[in-house]
């Protein structure tokens, strides 16, 4: 057997093995339907919109930022995040939170705000004749 296949093969096999294992361990499920999040226990990436009417709350002393998010059905979800409010949260078109659902709240470890930015040019607006 060729030495390079043995050495190369070992590295590839070992790391692909570890990768496969870690893949299942660190797997994040996408969920856009918030009613399903309530039932799940794993790490979830949820996409929705910030409920502007309910504002957001910043507890600086505990370093907690919380807000309400709603999905396409309008189902609301309270999101709690340990950390500062992300840049341009207010102007976000949609919010992607990663975390786990516990005790009636979604504990986010990461918040992405998607803003009309460099790769977006569409200016969406309903046509309403004035």
């Amino acid at each position: 057997m060729n030495n390079k296949y043995i050495f190369g093969g070992i590295i590839i096999v070992v790391f692909l093995g570890i990768m496969g294992y870690l893949f299942t361990q660190t797997n994040i499920k996408y969920e856009e339907d918030f009613s399903k999040i309530v039932e799940s226990s794993g790490t979830i990436k949820a996409t929705g919109e910030w409920v502007k009417e309910k504002n957001y709350n910043i507890d600086n002393s505990k370093n907690i930022f919380s807000f309400y998010m709603k999905d396409f059905n309008g189902t609301e979800l309270k999101v709690v995040y340990s950390g500062a409010i992300p840049n341009n949260f207010e102007s976000s078109t949609s919010v992607v939170v990663t975390g786990k659902y516990q005790n009636g709240e979604f504990h986010a470890s990461d918040i992405l705000t998607k803003c009309p930015s460099k790769y977006e040019t569409q200016y969406e607006i309903k046509e309403t004749n004035s």
């Binding site: 870690l22 797997n27 994040i28 996408y30 790490t43 990663t98």
Partner: peptide
């Protein structure tokens, strides 16, 4: 992974990149 509707946590990269 997002192509297949899933994703990985950042620890996936960190834990593998280290060794």
């Amino acid at each position: 992974a997002p192509i297949f509707g899933t994703a990985v946590e950042l620890s996936f990269y960190n834990e593998l990149a280290l060794p």
